[in-house]
Design a protein around this nucleic acid. Structure first.
Length: 517
RNA sequence: GGCAGCGUAGCUCAGCGGUAGAGCAGGGGAAUCAUAAUCCCUUGGUCGGGGGUUCAAAUCCCUCCGCUGCUACCA
């Protein structure tokens, strides 16, 4: 709540023609974990997601469905709004490119670009595929015996000539390269950064930014024959959602821009090349960072409609549990790499990391406290070296985890937290509080206090990843909502001896294969 | 084709000039507070092939083999 430190994070706006799958869920999940982390860490956070609703495909789909485009998008964009509830996302806003606030903002941006001399009217001609909504170079096409031109995707192309507005992207090549040079962390991970730089170095052509062949888009100001190129339209959502062109002091734009954009690797170029160029050309600040993450395969196979192996987020959540799913997606694969989803790995993570390591640690400790300490936080005596060592590891977690979160290394953050889970389990075995119960009850109380305090740290730090399960653990430590922020980590927010605790309940059940047949 | 990256234990990967590592899986043992969970020990690799530089190479160089990504206007 400081109001000083702000953090703005965005997902791509999802194309409404798609049905939400694990990939969409993953992108937004990463943003959600980061947004939650930053909020707990005292930042004033703005977390945006939304839907991209223009374009020829939408127009055609609406036509096929026999409804107006707006009615069509109203319906299908709901799929993405529903995902928010399914995955327990905490976005502060949900923008749709068909909203007036967006259209007005983009048109203003366009006008600015025209005034700056960055957009000019020219003509575009080439081989165009309606199905792909894309132009292809002559050398990419194959010619059928019948003389038809076929794109690499198999779609038929036709020769199209149309007037088009162009953005002077070619003029931005050197300034973009200078920007990447001055901001080495702008594109992450580093491998992707190199690809973008190589692309820009290879030479940039001016970009066609308007279309006249269909109508479902934002009209070009002053020339109704044209609508804007979908990417100029779509990318601008990141600032129109902040109220652009309103840029007054204390407003959303002033407060939150620039953003961290989380994107799939397929749309990296639009975000790392076109978007900063558009912004700089309009006299605006480029984004803070663009992070390109990888793709999921399913049981080793590429996800595709034809294979029928596309997984809906609801399916995962219903099968394995929400927090389990969130944990798996962020832990299993180094963020930025491609990963494979397999049932076997998912079950291994749930049973090993969650049920056995973390869940059982909590259960064994709280259960001993419940039975042997009168169901209240035990009263510690003097700490010995082993106590200080474990507590030190717990107290040191935030700094170590923060370093990883700041570079979006979610898997590393979780690994670091789990190192302390392991420390705590070893400590339990070494201290053997069940033996102390008979020989030295005061020492037992100290050991259990140290463990409870360690669990407090673990649960506070796992909140961004597994909000519901972490909340359940914190509730079992009788910590109210106001005692769960990162500001309470360390000795200052320590558990108070004598505080009554509710009776413990398991938080992470083992996954047992359904028995059938 | 060009550019970039990768190939290390059964599996997923870390190490990137100084006597081969982690997690999981496999084997043995301890303990019994706990969701039969935990803890300890342990089997296992000529670090893709070949050549070179160096006192010393997964680690640097060359080459070959295999795999992946990028090579502009589909989100």
């Amino acid at each position: 709540m400081s109001g000083e430190k702000t953090f703005y994070i965005t997902t791509p706006i999802y194309y409404v023609n798609d049905v939400p799958h694990i990939g969409h869920a993953y992108t937004t999940l990463a943003c959600d974990a980061l947004a939650r982390f930053k909020r707990l860490d005292g930042f004033d956070v703005r977390f945006l997601t939304g839907t991209d609703e223009h374009g020829q495909k939408v127009e055609k789909s609406a036509q096929a469905a026999g409804v107006a485009p707006q009615a069509f998008t109203d319906k299908v964009s709901q799929n993405f709004r529903d995902l928010v509830g399914v995955m327990n996302y905490t976005n502060d806003d949900f923008i749709r490119t068909t909203e007036d606030r967006h259209k007005a903002g983009v048109q203003h941006l366009w006008t600015k670009l025209v005034e700056a001399g960055e957009i000019y009217l020219g003509g575009y001609q080439g081989w165009y595929s309606v199905r792909d909504e894309a132009f292809y170079g002559e050398d990419e096409l194959t010619t059928t015996p019948g003389g038809k031109k076929i794109a690499p995707t198999g779609a038929e192309c036709e020769w199209v000539e149309e007037p088009s507005y162009f953005f002077r992207l070619s003029a931005w090549q050197d300034r973009l390269l200078a920007f990447y040079e001055a901001n080495p962390d702008f594109i992450m991970p580093p491998g992707k950064r190199n690809e973008v730089i190589a692309f820009v170095k290879s030479g940039l052509k001016d970009l066609s930014v308007s279309r006249t062949t269909f109508k479902w888009g934002v009209p070009v100001p002053g020339d109704d024959a044209h609508i804007m190129y979908v990417w100029l339209d779509a990318l601008a959502n990141y600032i129109t959602a902040l109220g652009y062109p309103e840029m007054e002091e204390g407003g959303l734009y002033k407060r939150y821009w620039p953003a961290l954009h989380m994107v799939g690797k397929d749309i990296l170029r639009f975000h790392a090349v076109y978007w900063p160029a558009f912004l700089m050309a309009a006299g605006l600040e480029p984004p803070r960072r663009v992070f390109a993450h990888g793709w999921w395969t399913i049981e080793g196979q590429k996800m595709s409609k034809s294979l029928g192996n596309v997984i809906a987020p609801e399916t995962l959540v219903n099968t394995y549990g929400l927090d389990q799913t969130r944990y798996f997606l962020l832990r299993e694969v180094p963020f930025g790499n491609d990963g494979d989803f397999s049932h076997k790995q998912m079950v291994a993570r749930i049973n090993s990391n969650l049920a056995n390591d973390y869940g059982n640690l909590v259960q064994r400790v709280l259960s001993m406290i419940g039975k042997n300490c009168g169901g209240a936080v035990p009263t510690p005596g003097a700490f010995i070296e082993a106590d200080d060592k474990l507590l030190g590891a717990a107290y040191g977690l935030l700094d170590a985890v923060r370093v990883e979160m700041d570079v979006q290394a979610f898997h590393r953050a979780l690994e670091i937290i789990w190192n302390v889970v392991g420390d705590a389990n070893r400590y339990v075995d070494e201290q053997a509080p069940w033996a102390l119960k008979k020989t030295d009850p005061a020492r037992m109380a100290t050991v259990l206090y140290v463990l409870a305090e360690t669990i407090r740290h673990l649960a506070i730090l796992t909140q961004p990843f597994m909000p519901a399960a972490s909340a359940a653990i914190l509730a079992q430590l009788a910590l109210g909502e106001d005692r769960r922020g990162f500001g309470t980590l360390g000795a200052g927010g320590a558990l108070v001896a004598g505080t009554p605790l509710p009776s413990p309940q398991g938080v992470f059940p083992r996954y047992v294969e359904p028995t059938e047949g």
